[in-house]
C-alpha cells in the first residue's frame, strides 16, 4: 500500500518526507515497545506508535522500517524530526487512536507482520 493511501485513510499529517509518499509499504506493526518492534517487524513496514522519542527513528533505521505514523495526536519533538530527515524515514501523525489506526488499515487490506510471507 502506498504511503499516500495510508495518509488518506488515517487523515494524517506529513511531518517528514512529503516527497516520499509514493513509497510502498508491505505491512504494518502497531507497538509501543521498541524491542518488540525489533523482534517481530519485517523490512518494508510502517510502524504505528504512540511514542515520539528519537529511539523510534533509530528502531526504524536499524530494522529497515520505511515510515512511522504517530497516533492520538502526538507530535514528535525536533530531535526526532531531525533524525528522521537525516535517516530518510517518513513521519506521519494522525489524531486517531492506535486502535482505530490499526483497525482502519487492516480493513483496507494492509497485512500484519505475521501474515506477510517470510522475513527479508
Amino acid at each position: 500500500m502506498k504511503l499516500e493511501k495510508i495518509k488518506d485513510i488515517l487523515q494524517a499529517e506529513v511531518i517528514v518526507g512529503a516527497d516520499d509518499l509514493q513509497k510502498e509499504v508491505k505491512m504494518a506493526c502497531g507497538c509501543d515497545l521498541m524491542s518488540d518492534v525489533l523482534a517481530f517487524v519485517k523490512s518494508g513496514s510502517i510502524l504505528l506508535t504512540g511514542l515520539v522519542n528519537p529511539q523510534c527513528v533509530r528502531t526504524a533505521e536499524v530494522s529497515d522500517i520505511i515510515a512511522i505514523c504517530f497516533v492520538r495526536g502526538k507530535k514528535p519533538p525536533n530531535e526526532t524530526k531531525k533524525l528522521a530527515e537525516e535517516k530518510n524515514i517518513v513521519l506521519l501523525a494522525t489524531d486517531l487512536l492506535l486502535y482505530e489506526s490499526c483497525g482502519e488499515l487492516y480493513n483496507a487490506g494492509l497485512p500484519g507482520c505475521s501474515e506477510y510471507g517470510e522475513d527479508f
Binding site: D32, L33, M34, S35, D36, L38, A39, T49, L51, N53, Q55, C56
Partner: peptide
C-alpha cells in the same frame, strides 16, 4: 524505562535471534 518503549525483556532474546 518501560514508558520510553524499552525494558520489555526482549533485548537478549532478540540478540540471540
Amino acid at each position: 524505562i518501560r514508558e520510553m518503549g524499552f525494558g520489555a525483556g526482549m533485548g537478549l532474546a532478540n540478540i540471540k535471534k
